[in-house]
Each structure stands twice: as C-alpha cells, then as structure tokens.
C-alpha cells in the first residue's frame, strides 16, 4: 500500500493534508480496507469545533464501526457531501474523492506527533 507523501498520518489511520490555514482530513487506504464496505459516514456540521485527538465522526461498514479522530484542532469549514451521499467513495478513493472534511486550523496546528508517509507505512507494516 502506498501512502501519498504530501500529507501526515495518525496511528488511528486518519490522514491530514495541510494547505496554509486549511487542512483536509480523510481515512487511509489501510483503514478503508480493514473496515470493508463502508455504508455510512457521520460527519460534524460545518462550524463545529474540533479538538486534537477527539472523535469528530464515525465511519460504519456492514460489520464494524470506527470513530474518526481529529488529527489537528480547528473548526469544520466544509464536509464532503458526496461521501455522505455515497459512502462507497471512501472505499474507492480514500486519498482523493473520498476525503471527509476540510478544517480551518486554529490554535496549535503544528504537525508534531503526526507521522509522515514513510513512518506511517512502517507503522502499518508492524500491525
């Protein structure tokens, strides 16, 4: 499994791509493949405040449910309506069209403690 190098990762299998004061968040290919067919995505409303490491939503497959944790603090700027309508997008394109939310970063938004692509790949291999 290759991980795009333009973003950071968490050990809970979220990815976050930082562009200036905005970040896009999704779940990794490893996460979608372990969950299996995703049938439902529950995302916060735009404007909701996010705290680093706290649950922001839920992805649900046929047999499992998984919390999504905020990799960075901020407020929700946009949610991916296409994913809410067709959750299979997360399975098909987790790093692209299957993104979940965009966040306006606030507070300490430094990527300290997040993994880069190589470190995440190493982490996944160890599982």
């Amino acid at each position: 499994m290759s991980q795009p190098a333009d973003r950071f990762y968490t050990k809970e299998h979220e990815w976050v791509k930082i562009e200036g004061q905005t970040a896009t968040v999704g779940i990794t290919d490893y996460a979608q493949s372990s969950l299996g067919d995703i049938v439902y995505v529950e995302l916060p409303a735009p404007g909701a405040a996010l705290e680093r490491g706290k649950p922001l939503g839920v992805v649900e497959s046929v047999k499992a449910v998984s919390d999504i944790y905020a990799p960075l603090p901020g407020t929700v700027a946009e949610v991916n309506a296409a994913v809410e309508d067709d959750p299979a997008l997360v399975n098909r394109d987790p790093f692209g069209e299957g993104w979940l939310i965009k966040v306006s970063l606030t507070g300490d938004a430094s990527p300290d403690g997040l993994l880069d692509a190589a470190a995440y790949a190493e982490f996944v291999r160890s599982l």
């Binding site: 299996g36 067919d37 439902y40 959750p87």
Partner: peptide, 10 residues
C-alpha cells in the same frame, strides 16, 4: 450484497 442493503437503508 450487504453493503448495498446498508447504503440504501441509511
């Protein structure tokens, strides 16, 4: 196809 049932049921 449980996934299809689930996506519609939601």
């Amino acid at each position: 196809d449980e996934a299809q049932a689930g996506r519609l049921a939601n």
